[in-house]
């Protein structure tokens, strides 16, 4: 990206990180990626009662090139998958993905030939939002959590360090199937 990625680590970088995070989270532009039932709830969230404008993101961009958040709202079929990836690739970095609803997160109840079993097979997902469909309040909660994540995101050498740490943690984590017990 720009100059901010080239800064030496230290006080300047962390300050820039905070400023950039604050600016980025305050005006997230979502791309319209409504697919199924969740899309209607997403539109409801943008409409009068729930009013996403309070979080600086009421304008859903028609073009992915002007958007930095993709809300995958609904089931992703095998036919839609390449389209979804192309839309994602057209978005400029930094970009985030919310997987809205169980169908997008894991295929949900449609465990069959037609549906991609989780949109994370195609694009990296930042927030998984359960529900069928999730209530608008839940979507707003996911968005607020994403704001926190955006605020805390790292730049330059710090980003490399964070990526390294995340990878290490993932490598050391137990696979889900080995984590026994009811509460995990």
């Amino acid at each position: 990206m720009g100059l901010e990625e080239k800064l030496p680590s230290g006080f300047v970088l962390t300050t820039v990180e905070q400023a950039a995070g604050w600016v980025r989270k305050s005006s997230v532009f979502p791309a319209t990626f409504g697919l199924a039932c969740c899309a209607i709830e997403m539109m409801t969230t943008g409409a009068g009662r729930y009013d996403l404008a309070r979080f600086g993101m009421e304008v859903f961009r028609g073009s992915p090139r002007q958007a930095d958040l993709m809300i995958v709202a609904g089931r992703v079929s095998q036919k839609m998958a390449p389209v979804l990836r192309q839309v994602y690739d057209q978005m400029p970095s930094p970009k985030w993905v919310i997987s809205m609803g169980v169908c997008a997160s894991s295929g949900g109840m449609f465990n069959n030939y037609a549906i991609v079993q989780g949109v994370d097979h195609i694009v990296p997902v930042d927030i998984y939002l359960p529900g069928c469909p999730p209530r608008p309040e839940m979507l707003m909660d996911a968005i607020l959590k994403l704001h926190q994540k955006i605020q805390g995101s790292k730049l330059g050498v710090n980003a490399e360090e964070a990526a390294r740490e995340a990878e290490e943690a993932a490598l050391n984590a137990l696979p889900l199937i080995e984590m026994k017990g009811l509460l995990r």
Binding site: N111, N112, A114, Q117, M179, K180
Partner: peptide, 11 residues
């Protein structure tokens, strides 16, 4: 076939 995949749930 229906084409579903096995799902991992609580181990």
């Amino acid at each position: 076939p229906l084409g579903g995949i096995a799902v991992e749930y609580k181990g």
